Simulated assay, not measured.
Amino acid sequence: MKIKIMDGHCDALTKLYMNPKLQFGIEEQELDVSYPRLKQAGVKVQCFAIYLSDSIQQPTFDHILQMVDVFHRQVVQHPGMHFIQSEADWRIVEAGDLIGAILTLEGVDALAGNMTHLRILQHLGVRSIGLTWNYANWAADGVMEPRKGGFTRKGKLMLKELETMGIIVDVSHLSTAAFWELVEIYSKPFIASHSNAQKVCPHPRNLSDDQIKAIIQCKGNIGITFVPYFVDSAIMTVPISALLKHIDYVCALGGEQHIGFGSDFDGIEQWIKGLRHAGQYGNIIEALCKNYRESQVEAFLYGNWRNFMLQNLPK
């Protein structure tokens, strides 16, 4: 069974930026996500996050622009890739043998509260923005910030700006308080690009039942992630079957049409057994096909993300 795949989050750009010798176009041991590995697995659309490593002590907008440059030079210029900025781009990818690339931002720290920077990123094709990483920035608190605060005044202004611009908001890494403030003031669908179910694995980065229901309610999407300690923190070697428990749980809450995957490949240093890189997505397909109908498997791997993106990307 040939099934298309969309992956809602990877950090390959960070590795390509930090180590200019790496090449996206060839199979590199150090890269979980590369063109040959995406092709091998049948990945049709991959989201590439601009994430400034915490080794960059004073991140600036110039660092973001440098990573946009890496995205264009390494990813978009590859003849087998196509930059998805709109619904029309998505349909171009589907009509041919290309792999689509969506550019996202993880953490608004380096925007420094400047809405002009935000608009520039929109012009450059950024289509989804995760508001924080784990800790606080000028806009909001992250999920690991000890004070557990919500949005700043300027952060709330940014939310309204994002709503007007049509950039998709990503709540993975956002504090619980900020999550519920967003639900109150933001009227569009939003996503958690790489988060799992807290009841199945009680990690702070995972979503509570009420958060999962809120994402379903707003017609958003949840990217089930491959970070082993977000899947099962009680065992050392996490099997693919443990991922299915999160899918079952979200489905039981009414989320069958709101589940996708967001691997976090290249942002992790531990891996699920049989999921060492993007080329091994076939192992997930095999496990899913033993437990779900073909139509469900296709929805989890591609269809749900496709429906969401076609409704929320610019026309």
Rank of each mutant, 00 (worst) to 15 (best):
L253Q: 07
Q211F: 03
L105Q: 11
W305K: 10
L159D: 04
V143T: 12
A112T: 10
C10R: 04
K219R: 15
L38Q: 02
S128W: 01
S175I: 08
A178Y: 00
F308Y: 13
L103E: 02
L243W: 00
Q280S: 09
D109M: 10
A192L: 05
D69V: 06
G100K: 03
L16D: 01
K273Q: 10
N307G: 15
K4D: 06
V143W: 02
N114V: 08
D69L: 13
F48M: 07
D11L: 09
G282R: 12
I5M: 11
H9F: 03
G254E: 02
A214M: 12
E161D: 14
Q280V: 10
I129D: 05
K188G: 02
E145K: 13
E87P: 03
P202M: 06
Y302A: 04
A101H: 03
S263L: 07
W133H: 12
L243K: 11
Q40D: 13
I3S: 14
D264L: 08
E286I: 15
D32K: 14
G125R: 10
C289S: 13
G113R: 11
A136E: 07
E161Y: 01
V200E: 02
P36H: 07
G267K: 09
K4M: 14
G8D: 06
F265M: 11
S187Y: 00
S187G: 11
I120E: 08
Q58E: 14
L38N: 03
S172E: 02
F300R: 11
V43H: 02
K154T: 10
S193G: 07
A278G: 08
Q257N: 14
Q211E: 15
E106V: 06
H63D: 14
Y229V: 13
S295D: 13
S53Y: 02
K199I: 08
G303W: 01
M81N: 07
E163N: 07
N221M: 15
G155N: 05
L253A: 09
L31H: 03
A214V: 04
A140T: 03
L111S: 00
R153E: 14
G96W: 00
V171W: 01
R119S: 09
A49T: 11
I5R: 12
E87M: 11
G125Q: 08
Y135A: 11
H82I: 06
